[in-house]
Design a protein around this nucleic acid. Structure first.
Lengths: 221, 221
DNA sequence: TACGTATTTGTACTCGGTTCACCTAGAGTG
DNA sequence: CACTCTAGGTGAACCGAGTACAAATACGTA
C-alpha cells in the first residue's frame, strides 16, 4: 500500500476534475456528457464514477463541506453557539482564499446551471439538519438543571422547535452570506475587496440573528 | 374547446397521480419505474410526461406552491412584511386541511425518499429567491425618501443583503415550521392537534424572527 | 521473478426523459 | 349525419446518467 498507487489515484482524480471543470466552463454543464469527460480524461466511464459518485460531484467537491455542527459542538466553554459561529466565519473571511481563479471558474459553472445550484443547495440542507440535531441536544436556555433530563413532553417539543428554527435561521443566513461573497467574486470584485465585504456581511448577519429582523417597512397608505 | 376534452384530461391527470402515489406508498419511490406507473394508469409514457414533467412532480404537485413573495407584495397598507406573513400562516393554520389522509400518504412518501426531499427543498429555494427580490425592492427601513431612488452604491449592496438575509431567515423558518407540522401528521398526531401546534409554532417562529434568537446557552466550563 | 490484490476496462444493461412520425377522438361546419 | 380540422395520445426508437459483471492490467511484495 505504498506511494505510487496513491499518487496515481490522486493524479487521476485531479485530472478528471480539471478536465470536467474546463469542459463545463467552455460549453456548460448540461451540454457535456460524462462520456466526453471520461474520454478527454483518458479513463473509462466506470472509473470516473468510482472517483465521483455523480456528474454533479465533479463540480461540487469542496462545496458545503464546512462542519457547522462540529464547530458548535467543539466550541470553548462560556461561548454560545452563535458566538462560536460568528468567530468561525470572521476567521475564514480574514484568511486569503487558496486559488481564487479556480474558485471563480467553479462558481460560474455552478451558478450557470440550475441542476448544479439545486445540488449545492441540497448539500447545505444536510448541514442544517446536522446543526439542528446538535442544538437540540444542548442544555436548555440558561441551563436550568431541573428538567429530569429525559424527554419532557410538550416542553421537549418546544425545545426541539427552537433548536430547529435556530439552525434553520443560521444556516440560511450563512448560505446567503456565502452566496453574496460568491456573487462578488463572479462579478469580478477583487478577492481582497470581496473578503472585506464578506467580513461585513458576517457581522451584519449575526447582528440580525441575535437582535431580530428590522420590522419597520410599513407600507405607506 | 369545450367540456369533454378538458374533463378527460383532468381525469387522466388525477388517475396518473393517484396510481403513482399508491405505487410509491406500497413499494417506495425509487423502486417504482415510470413505465410501471404509465402501464398501471393505462397511458403511454410520453403522455405521463406530458402531464408531469418529472417523476418527482408526480408526488410534489401542490407542495411549496405558496406564494410568499405575492403575499408580501399584496399586503395591506400599514403592514410590515413580517406581519403579513404571520397573518397568512396564522390563517392557514386555522382552517382545516382538505384531505388529511391523502396528505399524510404524500408526506410519508416524500420523507421516505431522499431524492424527493431534495426536490421539495429546491422548490422552497425558489420561494426564497422570489421573496428576496420583493424585499429588495421595498422602500428602505422606515422609508427614508432621500436616497435618489436609483442604485446607491455601497448602500444598495447593504440593503440587498438585508433583504436577502430577511428572506432567507423567513423562508427557512417557515420551512421548519411546516416540517414540524408534517412530522406531527406523519407520526399520527390528529389533524386538529397538529393544526393547534402549527399555530403555536408560527407564533414562536415569528417571535424569534422579530426579536432575535435566544443567545444564552453558554457552555459551562 | 512470480504471485496476490487493488484498480481499471469494455460491454451490456436499467431507467428517466425526449423526439418524431403517426393516429385517434372530440370539436366545429354544412 | 357526414366531413374536416386539430389537440392531444401513441409506439418505437433514441439519448444520457449510472450500474453490474467478468476479463484484463498494474502495483506491492516475497
Amino acid at each position: 500500500m505504498s506511494g505510487l498507487r496513491e499518487l496515481k489515484k490522486e493524479r487521476t482524480r485531479r485530472r478528471i476534475a480539471a478536465v470536467a471543470l474546463r469542459l463545463f466552463a467552455e460549453r456548460g454543464f448540461e451540454a457535456v456528457t460524462v462520456n466526453e469527460i471520461a474520454e478527454a480524461a483518458e479513463v473509462a466511464k466506470v472509473t470516473l464514477f468510482k472517483y465521483f459518485p455523480t456528474k454533479e460531484a465533479l463540480v461540487l467537491h469542496g462545496v458545503g463541506e464546512e462542519d457547522l455542527a462540529g464547530i458548535v459542538a467543539a466550541r470553548g466553554p462560556g461561548r454560545t453557539p452563535l458566538e462560536a459561529l460568528r468567530e468561525h466565519y470572521r476567521a475564514s473571511a480574514a484568511e486569503p482564499v487558496a486559488d481564487a481563479e479556480a474558485l471563480v471558474a467553479q462558481l460560474q459553472v455552478i451558478f450557470a446551471s440550475p441542476a448544479l445550484s439545486d445540488a449545492a443547495n441540497n448539500l447545505l440542507y444536510g448541514q442544517r439538519q446536522a446543526l439542528a440535531r446538535v442544538l437540540a441536544n444542548e442544555p436548555g436556555e440558561a441551563g436550568e438543571p431541573g428538567e429530569k433530563g429525559e424527554l419532557g413532553g410538550p416542553e421537549k417539543g418546544r425545545r426541539d422547535l427552537v433548536a430547529a428554527l435556530t439552525a434553520a435561521q443560521i444556516t440560511a443566513s450563512m448560505l446567503t452570506v456565502q452566496e453574496a461573497y460568491f456573487c462578488d467574486l463572479v462579478e469580478g470584485v477583487t478577492p481582497q475587496e470581496a473578503a472585506r465585504r464578506l467580513g461585513e456581511a458576517v457581522e451584519l448577519a449575526f447582528d440580525l440573528l441575535e437582535h431580530g429582523l428590522p420590522n419597520r417597512n410599513r407600507r405607506e397608505g
